[in-house]
Every structure is written in structure tokens, then in C-alpha cells.
Amino acid sequence: MKKTSLIQKLEVSKKEFLEISKSIIQPNIISDQKKYRILLKKYMKLEKIVFLYEEYKKRLASLKEVDFILENDSDTEMKELATTEKYKILENLSSIEKESYNLLFSSKEESETEDNRKAVIVELRSGTGGDEACIFVEDVLRMYTMYFKKSGWKYKIIHAQKGGIKGYKEIILDLNGEKGVYGNLKFESGVHRVQRIPKTESQGRVHTSAITVAVLPKVKDIEVNINLSDIKKDTFRSSGSGGQHVNKTESAVRLTHIPSKITVECQEERSQHKNFEKAISVLRSRIYQNEKEKRLRKISIKRKSLVSTGDRSIKIRTYNYPKNRVTDHRIHKSIYNLEGFMNGNIQEMINLLKLFENK
């Protein structure tokens, strides 16, 4: 596709995005849930296209500046620098063109690659920082659930373990939505660090805590074959919600995959059978992810990139409350609107990570 034709298509998408932006906040649209969901879905797709379009225009402007230097500057060193810069810009433009084309003309019958998966398991766990880490797990959970709502995705809690004072030591979600759920959320796997003054801090000192996030693609039986003889099953009394049912029957399930030593608990359902089914689903996803990470670690050594490895031991992001800043360390990008980010406005960062990965 010619550049002029692509720009025209992107311009049309931008106009449509601006129109939907105005109409989607109208009371008559919000009250009509069916119409609202359709427009929201369009809005989310167009938002990605518009973001790419703005990035594309910036790169084209930079290209003009570089070409001007190459044509008019007599300094040999400057020309060499400009030539190197031009090569980088052209690479960026090619990457943006490719992604824009995919978004504009993606087929409805597109095969379900891993990035197109509609269902994922999201796991959040407290790390260093004690009670403050548990509270931050709850804060990040709220951030994600607000993002899910904006995206029109549905989630259900599979397992939850409360923190000592507040928040969660661990929480696991089963998330379902349109194609691309995993393709967007896979970048969230890793260590999330928070720097802020805890409510319990009397001296006003800034503390650093950390939590881990794992996003696992939900896989089918045929993708991961689990031999039941390799699984140790334990049952125990639920400590979660359930009214009189709690602590009366051993409905909670703990599964241990003996070869990999991976353990999964599920206690949110009242039925032991349902808890077993959910635990098996999580176990299958973890085994799949475990094998995938081994492969990706080998690849990442060659690529020198940790964006899509899903390595949960890598510090990927810092949330600095005193400076109102969230920084993604993989792409060295900071956004100075922490409040908005924690309210679920994380798509901009995800889009930048996608661009980086495509490069």
C-alpha cells in the first residue's frame, strides 16, 4: 500500500474515532447497553489506530528534518549521523505501517494465534513489603478490573488469599473477552514496584514494595496433555466466601503437578468438582507457560529483549506516587499521570510495548 493511501485511511479512522469519542459519552448511548458495547469495541480498536497514526506523523516529520540535513549540510560527521538516524526512522515507519495495515484490514476469520487468545489467567501476588505489598496487589487489581471494563472483558475470581491487614497476598482471575486479550495483557507479566508513603508510616518516609503479575494464556486439553497419575489432589475447608457453607465441607482443592512441582489452589466455588475443574485449567496454563518461558529465555538471549518473555522475576515497572509517575523499564518510558493509569488508562503503555516488540 502506498504511503498516501495509508495516510488517507488513517485520517478517516481518526475522524471516526473523534466522532465516537463524542457520542459514546452521551446519556442516551450509555443507557443503551447494546449500542454502548458496540461503540466501545469500535472505540478501543480505533484508539489503537489513532495512536499509531500520531506516532507515524512524528516519524515522517523527523524524516523530513533528516533529509534536509542530508541535502543541505556540508559537515561530513553530521551527514553520517543523519544517515544512521534515517535508517532507524525508516525501520520505525515500516513497523508502524505493518501494524496499522493489520489493524485496518485484519480478517474476521483470522486464525487464533496465541496473541489472539480470548481467555487468560491473571495472577497477582504480594512480594517484598509486607502489608503494603498486599495493599498494592489490591490497587493493581482495581487498575486491571477498570481496564477490563473499558475493554468490555469479563472476569471471575478463581482464588483469593487475603492480606494481614488489608488487600491480598494472592489473587487469581479467569478473564474472557474478544480476540487479543492475551496479546494486550502479556506485557504485564513481571515485577511491579511501588514507591510511596504507606498509611501506616508515621515518619512520612517513602517505602518501596513489590508485587508479581503473571498473565497466562488459557490453553486447551490438546495443547497440554496432563497425566492424572502425575497429579496429587488434596481437599480442605474453604476460608473464602460462602456463608454457612464455609468450613462445613472440604470443597477447596489443591492440585500438585509432581513432575514440575507446580501447585494450584481453588476455593471460590461451593462445589469441589467445580473447584477441581478450575484448578486443572490454571494448572494447564501454568505448565504451558513454564515450557514457553524456557523457550523464550533462549530466544531472548539472542534478541536481547525481555518485552514478551513473560519472565516474572524481571522488574518491569515502577509506580512512583510522590512524583506522579509510572515508568516501564523495558522501553524506558514514563507517563506523568499515575492517577489516570491506576484508574485503568494503561492502553497507551501497552501500545508502546507492542511497537517496541514489533521492532
Rank of each mutant, 00 (worst) to 15 (best):
113 T>V: 00
5 S>H: 07
99 E>F: 04
198 P>G: 05
264 V>N: 11
141 L>S: 14
175 L>W: 08
68 F>Y: 04
203 Q>Y: 11
310 G>F: 06
33 Q>K: 11
179 K>D: 07
103 L>W: 10
254 R>G: 11
110 E>C: 02
301 I>H: 13
60 L>Q: 05
15 K>M: 14
121 I>T: 01
338 L>N: 07
51 F>H: 02
353 L>C: 06
253 V>L: 10
147 Y>F: 14
162 K>G: 11
99 E>G: 01
199 K>S: 13
117 R>T: 07
292 K>C: 02
253 V>T: 09
153 W>C: 03
350 I>N: 08
130 G>A: 06
288 Y>R: 00
323 K>F: 10
35 K>P: 07
225 N>G: 01
282 V>G: 03
326 V>F: 13
249 T>H: 13
235 T>W: 09
127 G>Q: 08
133 A>C: 03
173 L>R: 01
239 S>G: 10
119 A>H: 07
350 I>V: 12
255 L>Q: 09
241 S>K: 15
19 E>L: 15
316 I>T: 12
122 V>L: 12
58 K>F: 00
89 I>G: 01
89 I>C: 04
63 L>Q: 11
91 E>V: 06
220 K>S: 15
64 K>E: 14
138 E>M: 09
142 R>W: 04
230 D>T: 06
340 G>V: 03
356 F>R: 13
294 K>Q: 02
121 I>K: 00
188 E>I: 01
23 S>G: 08
144 Y>A: 07
118 K>N: 02
154 K>D: 10
312 R>P: 03
125 R>A: 08
31 S>G: 09
103 L>V: 02
10 L>F: 14
101 Y>G: 02
227 N>D: 15
40 L>R: 11
31 S>I: 13
301 I>Q: 15
313 S>Y: 11
1 M>T: 08
102 N>V: 02
248 K>P: 01
206 V>E: 13
240 G>P: 00
120 V>M: 00
311 D>F: 04
299 I>F: 06
81 L>V: 01
35 K>L: 11
244 Q>P: 15
289 Q>K: 13
213 V>F: 07
162 K>M: 10
